[in-house]
Design a protein around this nucleic acid. Sequence first.
DNA 1: ATCTGCTCCTGGATGC
DNA 2: TGCATCCAGGAGCAGA
Length: 274
Amino acid sequence: MPELPEVEIIRRSLVDKLEGRRIHGVEILLPRLIKWPSAYEFQALVTGKTIQKLERKGKYLILQLDDSMMLVIHLRMTGRLYFVDNEEKTDRFTHIIFDLGEGCKLLYADTRTLGTLYAMPASELWRIAGLAGMGPEPLTAEFSLAYFRGLVHARKGRIKALLLNQKLIGGLGNIYVDEAMAIARIDPDRLACSLNDQEAGRLYEAINQVIEDGINHGGTTFRDYRDGTGKSGSHQNYLAVYGRKGQPCKLCGTPIERKEVAGRGTHYCPNCQR
DNA sequence: ATCTGCTCCTGGATGC
DNA sequence: TGCATCCAGGAGCAGA
């Protein structure tokens, strides 16, 4: 599941290949992935435009085209975006093909087809509620300790639900949330407002740390995730709890457990996190 | 404000 | 081995 680190690695792996290239045409094999406007209009809006910038906000990739046209992509669970410069065969999961000329293509593939694509002028980005309403991201000045403490103090719900809420913090998903809570030794079942200042501070540091580590390790590859050139990440080899049910905690040896918290599968050490 | 539950979707894991 | 069922979860939404 691509979260902030994975999307950032995809962006970095594609930026030099995409910026300055012209979109000669778009082949849309699965129109329902285009959420705005219609697939037909989407095609018309991006065809002939040059990719000026490739940016990321939270888990969204944003291709800034000519005339402030924005091509926005969210990979959701199994979306993949990658660049090819030869006549590679495309598999049955390739749903959208951007022809970049000179034999180069940008492919959108997605096994579970939950991903979403949009095209609109910059002035209309408010249409994408999840993008327009996104909270500050880890590792930015806006995501300050004071901001985080304020959130934690004010929220009555579970701390895990807070961390997953993109309106409050942008870019975290299930894997990095479980990891941050493990590193900070916080029980994911705790209510946010029950955390004291010291615990909130530990969690704040852990969030920034797991995101930074995830990026430095090229992302976490469980099954589907690859960067824009097809390369896997390695952060799965460094995980404290996620996907390690039954395996010993790296700190105390207690078997990692899994339960449902805030509607999500949640991995934790029952000894370290309480 | 916050919760639960549902929807989208399919490959892989599990159960018998 | 084969078939049926369950599960993964990002995000949006309805309804409580």
